[in-house]
Structures are given as C-alpha cells and as structure tokens.
Nucleic acid binder design. Sequence first.
DNA 1: GCCAACGTTGGC
DNA 2: GCCAACGTTGGC
Length: 154
Amino acid sequence: MNYWLVKCEYDECTFDELKTRPQQTGRWRGVRNYQARNFIRDVMQKGDLAFFYQSNCAEPGSSGVVKVVKAGYPDPSQFDPEHKYYDEKSTKDEPRWFTFDVKQHKAFKSFVHLKDLKNNNDLKDMKVVQRGQRLSIQPVTPEEFEIVCEMGGI
DNA sequence: GCCAACGTTGGC
DNA sequence: GCCAACGTTGGC
C-alpha cells in the first residue's frame, strides 16, 4: 500500500469532475516523464491512495483523496497517431508510457492549499512544497499522508 | 504574463 | 558523454 500525490492541471480535470466520468473513474493522462513513468509502472498498485493535486491555477492545492482502481498499464494514447500524446518510438511489445485509473475516495471537508502545506513545518520534506519541483507523480510517506488528511478535515 | 527551474534533445 | 539550446512546468 503506497501513498502518492498526483498532479493535474486545473484545466484538464478537477476532483469533482471525476464523478461525472463513466464509472466515476478517470484515466490519468499524458505522463511523459521517465521518473513519473517508473513510479507508475513499477511501484504504484491497485488500492493505493493519492492526493488529487491541482496545479497551474489561481489556487493550487488538493480537494481530496483518490484511489487507484487500475494500476500500471500501457497508456493507449501513445499508440494513436492522431493523439496529442502519440509516441512513434513506442511499441506494443515494449510500451514506453504507462497510466492508471482513479476514483474519488474521500473529499476533503476543506480545501488544502499549497500555501498551507508550505506553512506546515512537518511537511517541509514533501516534494510538492519544494522549489522547482515538477514531478507529476510524487510518493508521499504515511505520516505526511495522515497530516494532510487532518488538514483537510478527514 | 513573467520567469526560474528543470528535463530533453541533439550537435559535436 | 558533454553541454548549450530549447521546451515545459507551474507558482506568483
């Protein structure tokens, strides 16, 4: 059982929007970074929990926790020439990119702002609060996970 | 919209 | 294998 922070641009999908998807499930899209890919392919498991973090917007932060309902499978978009995330160098025998599916697990009672994470000294080692940190799939320790859940009121 | 920080690419 | 140039991320 692992804990994560998964980043999504606000424009792409919000935590609430997950509920409107078929089976209330969203496929994570377009991870094209090797470090993040390795986490998805090699470490992430079905049943893991993750903070859904929204970036690139007026209020960066997290609305709640999602659960990994399908883990580490090849991202179909890499094989589709029409797709934005097509990768001509990837093959079905040796896929280069992986993805996973998530469902809402628990919504926070109150939104946890990036600012709040930064102001909490117990979270100073979290990747997300560190300067210039761009990794979109970040491991989180059980301690950090619990602290952030408390901050969100769950 | 700015710009710092980072990852990737490609010439050598 | 180095490293400059470039593109992207993402907070502000």
